[in-house]
Write a protein that binds this DNA or RNA. Structure first.
Lengths: 343, 343
DNA sequence: CCGCAACGTTACAGCGCTGTAAAAGTGGTG
DNA sequence: CACCACTTTTACAGCGCTGTAACGTTGCGG
């Protein structure tokens, strides 16, 4: 237990508290012999600094909050890990928060900062409006993640969704796909990310001179793989003719894959499939699913570094960083080996 | 920002700091009119209590640490979510830590407590020895998770691994399996959980009068799905004759499934498959994988409740709680519909 | 051998809140 | 109306640490 206090060490070593503090903090101007004497006292007494007292004295917590919709969603848990690891290397710790996309919980995120729990917040908003975000993040170090409507005044990190969708679609076309569908929209969904990805999808089709009816955008009832399966089955039952699917995320991709498997449709031979987020879900599926892969490490480091700058006192206008993405090519939409083969 | 202090509110309302504090804490003996006056001051000034100062004054942090090997492993992230949600309902927050199974990181876990960062620790140890665990958790509120060698003096929550493995194996046998393998051991692994699960596997076989050579325990080179695939392929290449696989976890199960898929072996018709942990990996696979399902909510609530009792001052001997588990029956080893059909 | 830097160390006032103990108010009784 | 038993409010001393400012100490040039 935190029984031993700085004062105890000071008394034991016969020096002032401040000197002990200086030793603890590796302050340079301490004579080696003094440093050693104090260190011995620290070791002898088993002293551990009390973080809370330090925080109160310095006003800094050494913690940042990471607020995401669901902490056990593969994308977020993988991203969290990256952020936590990068934070550790910068001497920070991460407090994870789950908002479940609820407005109340999202609003509460910034309260942690106000209450001095953390020095800043990395936040993936879903339901908070742009203007509310702008208002709430006044004077609070915040970095936003994701593709919701983000106010220009707030720092923001994301990948180029339009380009990523375009590239994924081009990849499908290069495989010989001519009638791809976008499994994307969710009924009642208002997220901007879907729009951006759809835009890239259509850009690629247009550039390739492919013209498709709007029926080639599939809609699921919610964000679950089951809903995705149903959407694919509905399309198939309705006789929709398609040879590739670009999914808005990996959960949709595994759902689509199930539906295709169940019908005995070969992936990628009959229908090629691309997911999004490059999570464990796509890596471990069979066949392994090609997936748009945001550079999670870059996302993590960019977001944290921007945040730490804000915490450090930076007061400039919102920075908007685009981090790299790639297409993680796997079996569900493999690399073109020979000439584009017709599907 | 935390500009407004308790003293400011007190001055504004013309009362003492303590009265404001009492209002903030809903202390009962405050006259309604006084409460209202203070509340108005709080609202007018936008006062938010400073958590750090409160912590220093009370000595309690309202946070518990959850230390697991990998925060983005589906099992741990799903468990974390449960724990975080239960903690929230009890007024606590969870600080997540990743040990990567490294002894140093595992040892550091208890330091957080010593430094006053958290009030207690829920810890899933891997590489820390039993005696070290016993020593390190003296006088520190700790609850252990998992199946490592746990000292009897420390609180511990887990499922009955032997029984779970036995039931899973019985389920495979009920499906008609006669030559199941256990995909379990990892070279150089010393974890006890594998042993327990293997024990249950063998118990079930013995009870059913099935006698198998030791070659029916498959060994992978590490914990990845790839290693699992390779192990299955090796067994198949070696001509090992088996009709069911019990995997030590879901990652192994998805790896095994890939290998079987790739060879055109039907699951469950030719080989039935059972995973372990009931994570997103098994739920979203195709076919969906039957998996031993620890009651994660029960695990979470038991562990946290035990911990909160310790934090509350309980000093009794170690409690050892077994939480329920079920077998989440899915397509890879479905329920028996008719009489047991031979595979 | 004095004066002045730069170095080393110390004393002490907070950081913002809560627990304690005591003071002040309230009302019921005899 | 004095007294007692509560209830309500207050003053103030910490919680354990760090920042500041000030106070020694050295070492070195003149």
């Amino acid at each position: 237990m935190g029984r031993v206090r700085l004062a105890d060490v000071a008394a034991y070593a016969g020096v002032s508290m401040k000197t002990v503090s200086n030793v603890v903090h590796d302050y340079p101007h301490v004579k080696p012999e003094m440093r050693q004497r104090v260190q011995e006292a620290i070791d002898a007494l088993g002293y551990r600094p009390n973080v809370t007292a330090r925080r109160l004295a310095t006003g800094r917590t050494g913690m940042v909050a990471l607020a995401v919709p669901e902490i056990d969603h593969p994308y977020f848990s993988e991203l969290s890990r990256r952020i936590a690891e990068h934070a550790a290397s910068r001497g920070y710790r991460v407090l994870m928060e789950q908002t479940l996309s609820e407005p109340g919980a999202e609003r509460a995120v910034l309260r942690d900062r106000e209450e001095g729990l953390v020095d800043g917040v990395i936040f993936h908003p879903v339901s908070t409006t742009q203007s509310e975000l702008a208002r709430l993040s006044r004077d609070v170090p915040v970095v936003l993640l994701g593709e919701a409507a983000i106010p220009l005044t707030v720092d923001h990190v994301m990948i180029d969704n339009v380009a990523a969708a375009r590239e994924a679609t081009e990849h499908l076309l290069s495989l010989g796909a001519r009638r791809p569908v976008f499994l994307a929209a969710v009924e009642g969904d208002v997220t901007v990310s879907t729009d951006r990805r759809l835009e890239g999808f259509q850009d690629a089709l247009q550039a390739a001179g492919v013209r498709l009816p709007s029926s080639h955008v599939l809609t699921a009832s919610d964000f679950s793989p089951q809903a995705s399966s149903e959407a694919v089955n509905r399309a198939l039952d309705a006789g929709l003719d398609f040879d590739a699917i670009l999914c808005r995320d990996d959960q949709f991709a595994v759902g689509a894959l199930s539906a295709l498997h169940a019908r005995g449709i070969s992936v990628p031979d009959e229908i090629a499939l691309v997911g999004w987020d490059d999570t464990a879900l796509s890596r471990f599926a069979y066949p392994a699913i090609t997936s748009v892969s945001p550079d999670k490490a870059a996302l993590a480091t960019s977001a944290l570094d921007l945040l730490l700058e804000r915490i450090g006192g930076f007061h400039g206008p919102g920075r908007h960083v685009i981090t790299p993405h790639t297409l993680a090519i796997r079996e569900s939409a493999p690399a073109v080996t020979e000439a584009a083969r017709p599907l």
